[in-house]
Design a binder for these strands. Structure first.
Lengths: 374, 374
DNA sequence: TTGTACGCGTTATCAT
DNA sequence: ATGATAACGCGTACAA
């Protein structure tokens, strides 16, 4: 007998056919029809913590499953004024050199029930273009790992969209930021290198004034000046591998000789500098020249390099950024907060970190282990 | 006199104050009020190609600017059934090792007027969890650079959401894919190495059967067998740097000696293998051992490595994926298409690619330039 | 606990 | 070219 009594399954299938023929979506109203309840009851079943009888809940869920019903986030956000989306604005630079940043942020937000709408900037100047899109999509908040102007920040305030800057600061603006203390990191590196007896420094910096690479440079220069050492030779870089080799040669040309140490604004430049020093110029690193970077990107830890560098606590910073943004979204207040993390020194083996022994008995090179002087 | 005649600016500011006090958003209705037109007129002004008188358009736009009005994408998508968002599902693996993929795809979609909703998978098994979110957000289509099951693909069909798999294939399923011919790439590499006289091969593969790394392995094994060479020693890898060193040692242990060449399923493993061979085992590469990888990641091109590898045409593949998905979205049809690209061989310097000369006059090592043998 | 009725902000249709 | 009106699919007072 195929003519059995009409079950929920039958009516659901019949309705599905109708819906398909009408070329429309399955709605909560359809589910209500199949479950024999009102549309609002269906709505409540999908709202965590709503009061609904267990039996009703079961019937509704069964109908929803049969119909492949999923609530429509667009309709929901229209009424709740919450899209549960955040925008992540990131430069291609940042994405290429810190791929784990994106992964961490994405994980952190997903864990907090927020989806990530991604905007990548080919150049920092593209911010205008993407911001217009950001407003359209009614995101609950924005993480910007890109340079924004004061005007941009002002627009966030006008539109009351919470903003957290990641590894970017803006002077004279009250804005949420999560950063690593790049200035201090630069100082720390200069201190360590100076303590080991380096006197003539070269620095390969960035070209963008507000970038971490340039804050590190400022820190290093500041400290070098404090210590009464000769001012370092500073050349700009583009953050890429090639800039390391070009920077090294430019520094040597300007100085007329090989400096004691080269501080690079990023690891990738440091690795380029290192390879050029060793394989193009035949220099012994760290015997004749110390090279240090920043970021502790993955290749810096590889056997061929083992770079002296400083690591940013990316996972913690990503978590902090997510926390901060979600807190601002939840509280609706306009308070701002700055969370600053410290970089961790990675010794590596491309910078000499102990003073060269002055007794002629010990050769200047081949200094494999720390020499106890005393 | 501060009591001047009421201008558009005045009424706009007054309305803005009201809106702020009511804590609601600026709507097209507000703009209509200020501009002295109907709400529909405002809507038309924001729709490209709609018929609206120039004067009206100007008045509306002025009012919109004064009020900081931006159309609400959620409300629009509700009625148009187009969210103009696509979901990008990507494993952390893929993101970490091919950061340019994300950047390329993001650029490509933004250029086509689509926003990218990002979902990263810690493990491939997390697909279930994120798909539920994907349906909620009514994305127009999905790019998946992750492993999906047949059931997952079936759900895309049921929900009529266009899907494009990126560098993943699914047997027995009609699904849009954009891939690189990894099998052929594996074969090509084996051919080149065999032509140079390599006989004993080791392969560091992947652990996931459907991954590019394993397709490459299949291709290489297939070709090695065709050439009548001894079957290669195959060990699994985790795609990371460490797997390269571990794989190398495992292969040597299994073989009882150093093979002629090691083919790695990915560059990062190849670089790990290379460093271990040179710095841990003191082997001459490519003198005693050839090492080759796949992908041409950035570090593989650095001076310290100069890895023999194969490059996927990522920008073209990303553009193809975007094209394919947008075409499926626009046409509404359920046709499927597979677009396959070819990898490009990068000679590098970690694999010997010419036969070793047999005449004793020419030393086996120090073979700097191709030797003309005739 | 459940149902009714309304509104979120837009686009689409239709008449003018 | 323009305006009135009806959806789109949902959450939420409020009443029952």
């Amino acid at each position: 007998m195929t003519k059995s009594k009409p079950t929920v399954e039958h009516s659901a299938n019949a309705l599905k056919a109708v819906i398909a023929s009408e070329n429309r979506r399955v709605t909560s109203y359809d589910v209500a029809l199949v479950a024999g309840v009102s549309q609002s009851a269906v709505s409540r079943c999908f709202k965590p913590g709503a009061s609904v009888a267990p039996a009703t809940h079961a019937r509704v869920m069964k109908a929803a499953t049969l119909l492949d019903y999923i609530p429509n986030a667009a309709a929901r956000s229209l009424i709740t004024r919450r899209s549960n989306m955040i925008a992540l604005i990131i430069t291609n630079q940042a994405n290429l050199y810190y791929p784990e940043l994106l992964a961490e942020l994405s994980q952190q937000f997903n864990a907090r029930g927020k989806r990530v709408l991604l905007f990548t900037l080919e150049r920092e100047a593209d911010a205008d273009r993407v911001l217009a899109d950001v407003w359209q999509y009614q995101v609950d908040g924005v993480i910007a790992a890109a340079r924004l102007s004061d005007e941009h920040v002002a627009e966030f305030e006008r539109r009351r969209v919470p903003l957290v800057l990641f590894n970017r600061t803006l002077r004279d603006s009250a804005v949420n930021t999560v950063t690593c203390d790049h200035l201090e990191a630069g100082r720390m590196l200069a201190t360590r290198l100076a303590a080991a007896g380096h006197r003539r420094f070269g620095i390969i910096a960035g070209h963008d004034d507000a970038s971490p690479a340039n804050e590190r440079r400022h820190g290093a220069c500041e400290r070098i000046a404090e210590l009464g050492l000769p001012p370092p030779v500073v050349v700009p870089g583009e953050y890429d591998y090639r800039s390391g080799a070009l920077g090294l040669k430019a520094i040597i040309a300007r100085l007329g000789s090989v400096p004691d140490a080269i501080i690079c604004g990023s690891d990738v430049m440091a690795l380029g500098c290192l390879d050029a020093a060793r394989h193009e110029l035949g220099l012994d690193v760290p015997g004749q020249l110390s090279v240090a970077g920043f970021d502790a990107v993955e290749p810096s830890n590889w056997t061929s390099y083992n770079l002296t560098t400083l690591r940013q606590p990316m996972p913690k910073m990503a978590a902090a950024a997510a926390d901060l943004l979600c807190a601002r979204i939840a509280s609706h207040d306009t308070e701002t907060e700055k969370r600053v993390f410290n970089a961790q020194f990675i010794e590596g083996a491309t910078a000499r970190l102990t003073p060269v022994a002055v007794t002629p008995a010990i050769p200047a090179t081949g200094l494999r282990q720390p020499v106890a002087i005393m």
